[in-house]
Amino acid sequence: MASQRRSGALELCKTTITAATSAVAAAMLLRRVAADLLPAGTPPLIGSLLLLPPPSSRRHAVVIEEFDGAYHNRVFLAARTHVSTLLAAAPGVPPVIKATLPRGADQIRFSMRPGTDVVDVFDGAELTWRLSSQGRRPWDGGAAREVFKLSFDAKHKEMVLGAYLPFVMARAEAAAREQRQAKLYSNERGKWRPVTLRDASTFATLAMDAEQRRAVVDDLDRFLDRKEYYQRTGRAWKRGYLVHGPPGTGKSSLVAAISNHLRFDVYDLDIGNVRSNTELRKLMIRMKNRSILLVEDVDCALATAPRRGADGGSDETSPAAKNREVSQFLDSL
């Protein structure tokens, strides 16, 4: 009898456990279905009755750290630029924000303090940017390393990863191009030495025939728009201009105006300072993309450039022979 009672109790326990497991599984399934079907603004009471998790647990997040190993994280830099524009324009900004004027900039930059957040709206979805501190930078006086946390509703995950973050990157790159100041590089001992081009000429301030100015600007814009065409046809994406005239007629001002219009840096190549064709190639390789190569007084420079002798030295006695390697290299540009 005792054995039968133990067996009956064991069967009852198994039945109870099976029923409870089925109930829990059904509840979990109901939660998943209800979470997918109910709108984001479902009242908390209804969510509790349906055994739904709280709204905070249905949110996803992307963590963007300031550094990627030893290098700055480009996504973090883009996020910081994007958040700065939100702080300047959005009404619901944190009560306290930071304002700085970086060296060389002409616009105030706004930034968040750690522990604060700001909301952005993209394609009808609300996304929250939050800034926090994480660790220290030993090489920067122990300053705190920062990290952005972008949180959003789980249903917007594909939109955020596929559209929103690329939009933030593109917008930051466009802002950087608009705000950057062009630089003038000069070659010295085989290296480029930069200085910032300040108060450089523009096409609006350039003393130039209106029709000729319009023709140059249209040609520059056409050149920018046809980058894909050059790549598709296997041609180098470059444009050349020959500017001539006596000193003081605005040749350098025209180059500065082109630089301002294209947002390209200028590399002012002094041929007389180039000691060999190898050095010239290295200078060309060290030029950045989207830049202007300026060769001033190229006819005079080549006429006086020494020719390298058979022993590798300079043949100062034959200036008329010129530096043929450098000349051929320039002819190919």
Rank of each mutant, 00 (worst) to 15 (best):
L45S: 09
I46N: 02
G47T: 00
L49R: 09
L52F: 06
P53M: 03
P53C: 04
P53Q: 07
P54I: 04
S57M: 04
R58V: 08
H60Y: 14
V62W: 02
V62Y: 02
V63G: 01
E66P: 01
E66M: 02
G69K: 11
A70P: 08
A70Y: 01
H72T: 07
R74Q: 13
V75E: 14
L77A: 06
R80P: 01
R80Q: 14
R80E: 15
T81S: 13
T81F: 02
H82A: 04
H82P: 00
V83D: 04
V83A: 07
S84D: 12
S84C: 08
T85F: 13
L86A: 05
L86C: 06
L87S: 02
A88F: 07
A90H: 12
G92L: 11
G92Q: 12
V93F: 04
P94E: 03
P95S: 14
V96G: 05
V96C: 10
I97V: 13
I97C: 08
A99G: 03
L101M: 11
R103H: 12
G104R: 03
G104F: 05
Q107H: 10
I108V: 15
I108K: 05
S111E: 13
M112C: 14
R113W: 12
R113A: 11
P114T: 01
T116M: 10
T116Q: 11
V118N: 08
V118E: 10
D120L: 03
D120E: 08
F122C: 06
F122D: 08
F122T: 05
D123H: 08
A125H: 03
A125E: 11
A125G: 01
L127W: 07
T128W: 08
W129H: 07
R130S: 13
L131V: 01
L131Y: 02
S132Q: 06
S132G: 10
S133P: 02
S133I: 06
S133H: 06
Q134A: 14
R136Q: 15
R136I: 15
R136S: 15
R137M: 12
R137D: 15
R137F: 12
P138Y: 05
P138S: 08
W139G: 04
W139D: 14
W139Y: 12
D140V: 02
G141S: 00
G142A: 06
G142Q: 04
G142N: 09
A143S: 13
A143Y: 03
A144G: 03
R145L: 15
E146Y: 10
E146I: 04
E146W: 14
V147Y: 00
V147W: 00
F148Y: 15
K149V: 14
S151N: 02
F152V: 02
D153G: 11
D153I: 02
A154W: 04
A154L: 06
K155N: 07
K155M: 05
K157V: 08
V160S: 02
V160Q: 02
L161N: 10
L161Y: 10
L161F: 10
G162A: 11
A163Q: 09
Y164M: 01
L165V: 11
